[in-house]
């Protein structure tokens, strides 16, 4: 049997590191639950989505395009587009974790932007153990599920979210997240191409096609703006 001399200190480190993002996720979770409840999802459905999907950006986007009848294919496609970044994130982190295949298949189920970034930072000075990653991930996951469930329960009692501007909070959250990806004029071009295309498609074709159309326009802009590599 493998011995883990740093088991408890690694778990403690993980929980300590994830405390700040966990606190930041409280109002976002409450808001998600409230906005989802406002779109007609039950508290059970909100809790199930947060527990199984556990991806704030994709969940807010899903609620934005949620309608009746439920557009399952559009929701799945939107989720795929928004979470494609996970492929790069997990590819990068997989090279830095000190645990095996089975533990990876379990542990990477709770990878989010925040705990991924913390693990990448820790990997600069120490191997990322399953105790560190798992403790951090479990706390962050429970936190998200709890606060979004509570938001669904008390959100229904609060009435329409427009009264508090809560319907705009996730737009503001996304603007804040987009800002973290801005690295130069290239990113601004991507944002302009995506935003203008999405707004036009939403106006003249309708939801949810604006998500795919805007995303493709932004990605195409980045591809075309990047310097053409010379043949080797």
């Amino acid at each position: 049997m493998t011995r883990h001399p740093h088991l408890w200190s690694d778990i403690r480190d993980g929980i300590r590191d994830v405390a700040a993002p966990g606190i930041a996720a409280i109002p976002i979770g409450l808001l998600f639950g409230a906005v989802a409840a406002g779109k007609g999802l039950s508290a059970a459905e909100v809790t199930l989505m947060s527990a199984l999907v556990f991806a704030g950006g994709a969940q807010f986007a899903a609620i934005e395009i949620w309608s009746t009848p439920v557009p399952v294919a559009a929701l799945a496609f939107s989720t795929l587009l928004i979470n494609l970044r996970h492929v790069l994130m997990s590819a990068s982190l997989a090279r830095k974790v000190a645990f095996g295949r089975g533990a990876r298949l379990l542990g990477f189920a709770v990878m989010a932007d925040e705990n991924w970034a913390l693990a990448e930072r820790r990997a600069l000075r120490a191997p990322v153990s399953f105790a560190y990653w798992g403790g951090m991930g479990l706390v962050f996951w429970l936190n998200w599920v709890f606060w979004s469930a509570l938001g669904a329960v008390i959100g229904a009692a609060m009435g329409p979210p427009e009264r508090f501007g809560a319907d705009f909070a996730f737009t503001a959250l996304f603007i804040g997240l987009i800002a973290t990806f801005v690295t130069g004029r290239g990113t601004l071009l991507v944002i302009a191409a995506s935003g203008i295309t999405a707004a036009l498609v939403h106006r003249f074709i309708g939801a949810p096609w604006h998500v795919a159309a805007g995303a493709i326009a932004g990605i195409a802009a980045a591809y075309l703006a990047a310097p053409r590599e010379d043949a080797p």
Binding site: G57, L81, F170, I178, A198, A199, R203, I216
Partner: peptide, 16 residues
């Protein structure tokens, strides 16, 4: 470009 392009597309109708 995928993350900013996708996030922008989602909120563009509300924002613009």
């Amino acid at each position: 470009a995928i993350p900013p392009a996708v996030l922008t597309a989602v909120i563009a109708p509300t924002a613009l």
